[in-house]
Structures are given as C-alpha cells and as structure tokens.
Design a protein around this nucleic acid. Structure first.
Lengths: 153, 153
DNA sequence: CAGGTTTAGTTGACACGTCACCTAAAGCGT
DNA sequence: ACGCTTTAGGTGACGTGTCAACTAAACCTG
C-alpha cells in the first residue's frame, strides 16, 4: 500500500464546504417541505416522477428505475405514502407479482401545492446564488462525478 | 403570490445533477466506510472531530457545536458509538450536568485505519475528477450557498 | 408439464435524524 | 436560602434508508 495522498488545503476547503453545504441544504429542503406542505423530500420526488408519467401510475420497479432507488426503499416509501393518502397500490391484472403505484387526487393536489414553494426555496438558497459560470461549472462537475460513480457500481 | 419562476433547462440540469450526485456520493461513502472499516460516515466525522482536539475528549455541547449537529443527534450518535466501543461517556467533575465524550483506544485505532481509505475514495470519485478551475468554482459556490443557508436559520 | 431459476415485490431488523418533551444541575436575583 | 430561569443532556416516537431474507408468480428447459 502506497503513501496516502491527503487533501491539500484548497482541496480540503472545497470538500468540507461541499459536505457542509449538502448536509444543510438537505436539512433545509426537508424542513421547508415538511413545514409548508406536510410532506418529506422523498414524498416530493416520488410524486414528481408519478406526475411526469402519462397515466400517473407506475410499477414499483419502474419507480425504482426512475429514482435509481432500491426496490425495498421504494416499497417502504410507498407504504408510508399510502398511509398518508398520497398514492395507492393497485394489483396488476396481467402479472400477479407486479404492483402499480397510482397517484391519488390527494397526491396530485399535494404536489401541485408544494412544487412552487419548493422551487422558490431551491432558487433562493442555491440557484440564484450562482453566476452563469458557476452554474456551468456545477453541471460539468456533477456530470463527471456521476460518470465516475456510475462506473464504480 | 407572484408567478412561479420555474427552473430553466440549464438550471434544471445543474440542479438535478447536483441532487443525484449528492445522493449517490453519500451512499457510496457510507457504504465504503461500512465495508472497509465497519463504521458509518457519522461515526467517522465524530471521530475526526475528537481526534483533532488535544485531549481527545469533548463535551457533548462542544461536539454539537463543532459538527453543527443538534444536541439530541449527538446524544443518539454517542450512544451508538459507545455501544460499538469507539467512545466513552465520562461525567464532568465540575459540572454535574455536563458529560465528556472520550475517544477510546479502539476508536483511535479505528479512525487511523479508516482515514486513508476514506480519503482515497473521496479523491477517486470526487476531487481527482475536478480541474483546478472547477475546484475553485466549487469553493466559491459552497461559500455563497452556505452564507445564504446560515442567514436563513 | 415438472422442477429449477429468475423476477417482482414485501418484510423485519437495525442505523440514522428530527422533533417534542423531560430531568436535573447551575445560575441568579431577591 | 428561596424560587425562577437557563443550560446540559437524555429519551421516545416516528420517518427514513440499507441489508438480508422471504414469498410467490413467471419463465424456462428438458
């Protein structure tokens, strides 16, 4: 095993900044949604995916693929959202193993009410703080890192 | 209430990229630490803070301040880490309310073993993917967003 | 079509985070 | 010394995320 290449000061600043930012940003977005719309960030992203489909319903596996979540995570999340009335499980007539997740009217109303405030928050604390160059750099960074991450797994 | 300012395509790409990156990065770092060093990312950062202090012990409140975590989060985390033998609670002789969190020899050994692999992973999937300009942009972004976030709360 | 394999999804155990609430010691003004 | 407030920390409930194990339907393949 070779010598560890510790982070330089510049790298350290960028990395620690990133870690702190992502942790606080996550906490804030969760909190904002909970307070303003009584839903979690997880609820929100699931509702976004469901809303973006023509039928407003997806199989659990399709939902998992779209979110890149483990199927068991989806299953747990759907159970909780069903309890809150946001979605409904429906058996698939053609495949006995499969289950559809349907958006309920209540779920549709919830996402429509939540989305504007959520976007507003994302803008206020993040997007609107960045210059055009920084936005471009961010896209470049995330693209490269995501490529690397996808290659890892 | 005024019209919602939805994200433009460029903003959307950057934001979605960021969200996806942070989610996968988090999962990977947690997983890597768990597999290689049998500890969570939370364990790791707590151990880092403890290791960085002269006495290798801190009050719960000092730990909370250093990590910017809620005190109850620290308390739960310390309970779990105590169970794993990484730290030990010690009553404070001068203030009956207060409690010290001491690094144990086992905790010190664990962090020393974990740190090189963790840094290696951070480099491989993140830092080493970035150009100098991107690193600079990232620092600038996180600084501004953190300022905004700190102003919010 | 019988028997093994793959696929879809669920479940349970456990770790992590947050919130609201609680206990007890310290501090403080009278 | 007396109460009142502040401060330090812990607790329990609940939502969330991961992992491993499970059930059952669907799909082979001989």
């Amino acid at each position: 095993m070779t010598e560890t290449r510790w982070l330089t000061d510049r790298e350290q600043r960028a990395w620690r900044g990133y870690v702190q930012m992502q942790s606080k940003l996550n906490a804030l977005l969760n909190h904002q949604l909970q307070v303003d719309s009584q839903m979690s960030l997880s609820d929100f992203v699931v509702l976004v995916v469901l809303t973006d489909t023509a039928e407003e319903k997806l199989r659990v596996s399709e939902l998992a693929a779209a979110l890149e979540w483990e199927k068991s995570r989806v299953s747990h999340q759907v159970t909780r959202m069903e309890r809150r009335g946001l979605v409904q499980r429906v058996e698939c007539p053609t495949d006995g193993r499969s289950a559809f997740v349907n958006l309920t009217p209540c779920g549709r109303a919830a996402i429509e009410a939540a989305a504007p405030q959520h976007v507003e928050t994302v803008r206020r604390v993040f997007i609107d703080q960045l210059t055009a160059d920084e936005l471009q750099a961010l896209e470049s960074i995330t693209t490269k890192v995501l490529e690397r991450l996808d290659a890892e797994c």
